[in-house]
Design a protein around this nucleic acid. Sequence first.
DNA 1: GTCAAATGTTTGGTATGTCAAACTATTTCC
DNA 2: GGAAATAGTTTGACATACCAAACATTTGAC
Lengths: 137, 137
Amino acid sequence: METWKEFEANELTHSAAHHLIAIHELGAEYGGWARVSDIAKDLGITRGSVSINLRALKKRGYVVTDEHRMVKLSAKGLEVANSVKSKKAGFKTFLIDVLGVSEAQAEIDSCKIEHLISEETSERLAQFMDEHKPAHH
Amino acid sequence: METWKEFEANELTHSAAHHLIAIHELGAEYGGWARVSDIAKDLGITRGSVSINLRALKKRGYVVTDEHRMVKLSAKGLEVANSVKSKKAGFKTFLIDVLGVSEAQAEIDSCKIEHLISEETSERLAQFMDEHKPAHH
DNA sequence: GTCAAATGTTTGGTATGTCAAACTATTTCC
DNA sequence: GGAAATAGTTTGACATACCAAACATTTGAC
């Protein structure tokens, strides 16, 4: 009867998920390392906000920093970043290819729910997509 | 590039959506009217929280109150409550019947995303479900 | 090596959404 | 009709997540 509170209990908030994704993408060419101001620029928020948000993500073990204040995902952070990205990609593909939703709306919807979908659902969706792949000769 | 901020721009928060749904369901037998303390009991939060949250929902035109402090959805509030409920129901059915997700997980996932799904996606999903109804004789 | 620019942090502010607890108002019971 | 229980509101607290602006630190240009 209080299923609705599961939302608050979610491992990651939408904001936290996007901080991790930003680090992952910005760090891609630099061995995983990213800078606070580049994360801020990428997310369109201030350096101050990122600084504070990273403190919490660091404390919770999702990111690590080095002596030059460079930021990197921990193993746990990398795992959840990849999980969220794959959920988003899978759901977006489903929306476009199966339901026929427009690309723009599919991007928005998949971005909104990427961090909320359970492993069970994302696995079943992947299985469904696999079974309904366009036929090949 | 800042699609991720659409989340914050969503018409309803998860909490707001569930306040509206609670009013809708509690009021069902009383001409739509519900009491603060029953809403609080239903949601599992304090009367104080509900009181404050309703103030905002009233200001934004989703609920109305009478001289006895009874609470009811406005036409707009009723519309969004119904929309959210139907999105949840449609998505949950899809998860269970099409993907084979467990009932418990489908309930949680659909509850988390019910207020985030666009009209376009929910319409396409409804259409998909309609086209894939179990065959009848 | 100095000075300016860029970067990172901190502080004080806002908004949401929760709590506990104090307070006020209403209803119910006898 | 008075006392107790119930209902509603308000206050002060906390957590998240943003901003602007002040501040500190680091980097880079010369």
